[in-house]
């Protein structure tokens, strides 16, 4: 049976890893490709590069990084951030990325999902959703622009629409849990992963290996993403997988 995937996420700005990384065994800890290759060796199942460059030059640097990553990695990787058109998708996919992830641009122009899926196939199109619970609405609402802007869309409705339009995967980030390191948002992840029939990547809140066990035992998430706990070597991918295996979760 298919295994659950563990996915480190790297924030990249102007071709450099943003969050301080404390690996001692890397020649250049700021080089995203070198860090990615290390995760590859450590049995990461997939990688996400999130481009947070603001400038046009930064974006061009990203494309060069993708070419190098495609040459060196032996696992699939997704690139997100700043992808607003089918041409942007083309540029990144043809540089060697396996998937592109779109977030704000998909909300603003939902037709982009269809266009991308039609041209490159659904399996290439990841729709990333930033979700935050609204106590008045008693539901999760979609946020855009890196979490700065609230929309009136409900997360489940938007996830279903994204899948209908051709999204091959949903990257679901809980803004409530993100950075808190006290576990994934289980109710949110449970709801979305139960209701849609493409893989859901849980994101936001991982702090210990037990959090990975929880998200896979208590929801139907296909994958779990984490950033800082891997970068700061608080928990290794190996430890996460050992804990999952011990709890009967099928991993690579």
């Amino acid at each position: 049976m298919i295994t659950k995937r563990i996915i480190p996420c790297l924030d990249v700005k102007d071709g450099r890893v943003v969050k301080g990384v404390s690996f001692v065994d890397l020649r250049d800890a700021g080089d995203p490709v070198e860090l990615a290759a290390l995760y590859d060796r450590e049995q990461a199942d997939e990688l996400v590069f999130l481009d947070i460059s603001a400038s046009h030059e930064g974006r061009k640097t990203m494309r060069d990084m993708v070419i190098r990553a495609a040459e060196q990695l032996t696992i699939p990787f997704t690139v997100g951030g700043g992808i607003g058109t089918v041409d942007d998708m083309f540029s990144i996919l043809w540089a060697g990325a396996d998937k592109v992830s779109i977030n704000t641009s998909a909300v603003l122009t939902p037709g982009l999902i269809e266009e991308g899926a039609k041209r490159f196939g659904s399996q290439c199109i990841v729709v990333a959703i930033d979700a935050k619970y609204d106590p008045e609405e008693k539901d999760w609402l979609v946020y855009t622009h890196g979490g700065r802007k609230r929309t009136e869309k409900r997360v489940l409705d938007w996830a279903k629409e994204a899948v209908d339009r051709g999204a091959g995967e949903i990257l679901l980030t809980s803004m409530d849990q993100d950075g808190r390191k006290n576990g994934y948002d289980l109710p949110l992840t449970r709801l979305i992963s139960r209701e849609i029939n493409v893989p859901v990547i849980a994101s936001g809140g991982a702090g210990t290996e037990a959090h990975f066990v929880d998200v896979f035992l208590q929801t139907e998430a296909a994958a779990a993403l984490a950033a800082s706990i891997f970068h700061y070597q608080e928990v290794s991918i190996k430890q996460v997988k050992a804990a999952l295996e011990k709890n009967g979760v099928n991993v690579r």
């Binding site: 049976m1 298919i2 295994t3 659950k4 995937r5 199942d45 696992i75 699939p76 659904s122 399996q123 091959g168 995967e169 029939n197 493409v198 893989p199 296909a222 994958a223 690579r252």
Partner: peptide, 29 residues
């Protein structure tokens, strides 16, 4: 169930083949 079939899954060798000589079954993407 989820479609696409996406991720790492176990490869089982069914018939002997020169491809497999000296290799062990494992996960592929």
């Amino acid at each position: 169930y989820n479609i696409p079939h996406m991720g790492w899954n176990w490869l089982s060798f069914k018939h002997p083949h020169p491809f497999f000589r000296g290799l062990e079954e494992g996960h592929v993407y």
